[in-house]
Write a protein that binds this DNA or RNA. Structure first.
Lengths: 206, 206, 206, 206
DNA sequence: CATGAATGAGACTTCATTCAT
DNA sequence: AATGAATGAAGTCTCATTCAT
């Protein structure tokens, strides 16, 4: 008698007062965790910190998540979704050259990071963050599409594989964000990323 | 600045049985900490882990260090000294072009990191590691000297400032090490750094 | 005394869709608890374990039972009924000598225990299990009847009271089951009980 | 510089003020655990209960033992030692027949249990007590020696193996203790064990 | 009848740290 | 210089139980 729906097997669970409340509670946990990410970071926060800030009981925390890392993944997923749905569509302007699109891609990437805040980004840019390799695929795919398009249009050289170029750009991009972090966000990441990428990109031109 | 060896301001302390034993004990602590850095990392290791692995008592640990971070600093200093004394001299071969020297610089940088081991490097490449900005000056200086020499000899363009180029190279270098870390050291950092730097450097050529 | 079937004092409740569902739910709980008895035992199982395995919600569990012990009692009652109704009648074969009947009694007792499973029996054979003295009366009565018959027929000596002999046999029987438990059911209880009782019984022969 | 001793590798650690204190602390833990065994039992007691009653801190408890079960094993070992050193020697009186020695053996076994107290014994006689099979070997060995001696002297029949007889006697012995427990120690275990064993033993006579 | 969200007490365990020896 | 006994704060996690829907 659970979530009886139409003919679909899983489908969206019926929205009741209860499911709404459950969502609200998860929201509280997410919010609290983001807040703590920005101040003390994932490693230093405790589950007690989270449920205190969220204004719920420990038990409730454990009802929804097993570890704080699990919350972090969800958090990441949400941020990721935002990037996908809001940022990516902006790249589809026909009139732009591929180089410009790539610059735009990194510009938005930088803006996105700056919007998340220094502390959050510092947490993210950890060498032990599995997300880079696990979930980052999507971003890689987007960028790689641009590179491929560039090679197809003759804007980019084809002497280096698209995948390699993509990787190259991402490595440099992450290097820039990393630098921004260790310098405590003391400059405009967005400006620097656009400028520095502008210097790098000619390397791959025809 | 405790019980240092020769050359420090306090002058050489008289070497007695006691000071020898003390040095030996500190050595044990350092060794154990390095070992643990390579396996579980600074954040995850406990003081218990350290003194267990070192084969000494808790009390003895506290006799020499107040925190594990204190040990880490000493460790870092030792590694840094090694780089200065062993690696840097190798760059002074007259017959090399500046570009080659820079590649050699990064090659050794990579070798150095690989020698330290993945986990150790993962620990180091943290956005909260103050060492990058605090102690890294020396390495920056070395690299910048090379860049300046390159511009003086006409090998490099002077349209971009030496400092900016240096920074650019370091950012990319760190990006590469970071990538190596998040991919769990699944490839040869040394090979990749030489190859990728080889692609980047022409950007700054005359 | 809830929602009982026929024959109880409250009289048969009207069978509706609801009562049927209720019975089914209780059945699920019983089944799950038996399963858990056989694997982890009463002490180690949690109410969470039970309702998970039963595929119902916590609330539903509490609707029917207050504690897991309460379920256990029901379970015990069911098993006991089974022994009474299925096993005991088999002893009434005229052609058997009393000694043979007693061996049969213990054989079925052993079979019954083996059927219940090691973990279940381990739970039962607790020194704090009130069931032995409270509910065991019935089994004692059965056995004692056999002993009395044996004395009447001259098969058994009358120099020791029937009650004392009965007790003696039960103590040894329980000792055997206990041994089977502490040896983790590593042998056939049924075979051993028949064999060992066969050795003991001559003591009470004429 | 640990416990330097003579030429033996392990040897008794030098007795200092500190080792004495350590022993005293362990003693406190043991005492507290015994006390709790007698009242609420191993399963129900918590580590908090133990260290509270022992008047030490949690940390100290964990300094010496990892689990309460570990304490229990030590406890058991102590009791076992007592049996070995005090009880067993009493069996070596030449003038006794083997049957008498066995009765004496069980008499002391019963006395020993009665001395431990009903609650303690109740805890011990658990089907999940690994001690019966793990550590009980010693007692089995003692009893078996007696049986073997009885067979050698012709007092006992040799048609059944000594090991089997030993086991038989122990099973019955445990059955008696178990009965004493479920009847809440309402009779003299010592008297009953001597009496009932006296009835059983003739079975194995020549 | 059935659900599962929410609670918070409480058990377990680890650790950094102190200090008398 | 070295030891390790003792401490207790603090974090993790589980569970029984309640109750509105």
């Amino acid at each position: 008698m659970k979530a009886g729906g139409g003919g679909n097997m899983e489908g969206p669970r019926k929205v009741t007062q209860r499911t709404l409340q459950a969502e609200a509670t998860k929201e509280k946990i997410i919010k609290a965790t983001i807040e703590l990410m920005k101040t003390i970071g994932l490693n230093n926060m405790t589950i007690k910190d989270i449920h205190h800030k969220a204004g719920i009981s420990v038990g409730t925390f454990y009802h929804y998540y097993k570890t704080k890392e699990e919350v972090f993944f969800e958090l990441y997923r949400i941020a990721d979704d935002y990037f996908k749905q809001v940022v990516v569509p902006k790249l589809n302007r026909k009139e732009l050259a591929v180089t410009e699109k790539i610059l735009l891609f990194f510009k938005h990437y930088a803006l996105f990071n700056e919007a998340n805040g220094l502390e959050y980004v510092k947490q993210l840019y950890s060498t032990s963050n599995k997300m880079f390799t696990a979930k980052g695929r999507y971003m890689i795919a987007i960028l790689q599409e641009l590179v491929v398009a560039g090679q197809a249009s003759g804007e980019f050289s084809s002497s280096i594989g698209a995948e390699e170029i993509t990787n190259y750009l991402l490595i440099f991009g992450r290097g820039l964000v990393f630098d921004w972090c260790i310098r405590e966000g003391s400059y405009s990441l967005t400006e620097k990323i656009v400028w520095d990428m502008g210097i790098l990109l000619p390397v791959f031109r025809q």
